[in-house]
């Protein structure tokens, strides 16, 4: 199958320091793709390069064959790249529904109001937030905020959803709910790329895993394979007798 999302040699330098160097990967349609690695490996930088919050020093990004490398954040969203943040950032002055409506109204240019409202309600439904639609976003619990974060991204009707450590701060039972939620999103036809450091979550969720260290790709493959890779073990545990 042809890849839906292609990163080709993505590189980001801050001053002389390469935060991400020559990172390439393909994500197939309908796949759940994880990016993992120790702290400081460059995972979040890669996600920011994908969603356009950072411009790459070199490299290329393609969505379904279209070059997005020089597109703005908003244009990438219009093209079908949705993004949920690690530190949940709801708009506190708005209700839950209005928060989601922002994504529905602006996710694609020229969506009529009624259609946007339908999309917002659908996103609320899929994330189990319908009962909370009229609550002010600042009143939500952390788990509900995470759901809202995903609902907002879903309301933009993405083809690829980028998730930045959505499990951070969740208790194990809540993390299990969140895993189900993400699986549901994929079953709804959305390709998922996520970065995560809760390893059981990666194990349960990812079809394929990209391991990064020092800004570079260490290896790539199914979870069970990559965690047996001596280079991955070394990245996580440190070199024997180094």
């Amino acid at each position: 199958m042809t890849p839906l999302l292609r990163a080709i040699g993505l590189t980001k330098r801050f001053g002389g320091l390469a935060a991400v160097e020559d990172v390439s990967f393909d994500v197939a349609p309908g796949e759940i793709f994880a990016i993992i690695g120790p702290n400081g490996a460059g995972k979040t930088t890669v996600l920011n390069l994908l969603s356009g919050l950072l411009a790459p020093t070199s490299g290329r990004l393609e969505l379904d064959g279209h070059d997005l490398t020089t597109r703005s954040t908003a244009e990438r969203c219009h093209a079908g790249l949705g993004r949920a943040f690690q530190v949940v950032q709801p708009f506190p002055e708005m209700t839950v529904r209005d928060n989601v409506l922002v994504g529905a109204l602006f996710g694609h240019p020229g969506v009529p109001r009624a259609e946007a409202e339908r999309r917002a309600d659908e996103a609320l439904e899929r994330t189990g937030l319908t009962a909370l639609a009229d609550v002010d976003a600042e009143e939500l619990t952390l788990m509900q905020e995470k759901r809202l974060e995903i609902a907002r991204a879903l309301a933009t009707q993405p083809r690829v959803l980028l998730l930045d450590e959505v499990m951070a701060g969740l208790r194990p039972a809540e993390a299990r709910d969140a895993v189900q939620l993400v699986k549901g999103v994929r079953d709804g036809g959305v390709t998922v790329v996520f970065i995560e450091h809760v390893m059981p979550v990666v194990r349960d969720l990812a079809d394929r895993v990209l391991v990064m260290d020092h800004g570079q790709v260490l290896t790539e493959g199914p979870y069970a394979e990559v965690v047996q890779d001596p280079r991955v073990i070394e990245a996580y545990l440190g070199k024997e007798g180094a």
Binding site: P38, N39, L237, G238, K239, E240, G241, A242
Partner: peptide
């Protein structure tokens, strides 16, 4: 506090 387990445990 370290993620380099080998070296810090040594």
């Amino acid at each position: 506090v370290e993620q380099n387990v080998q070296r810090s445990l040594q």
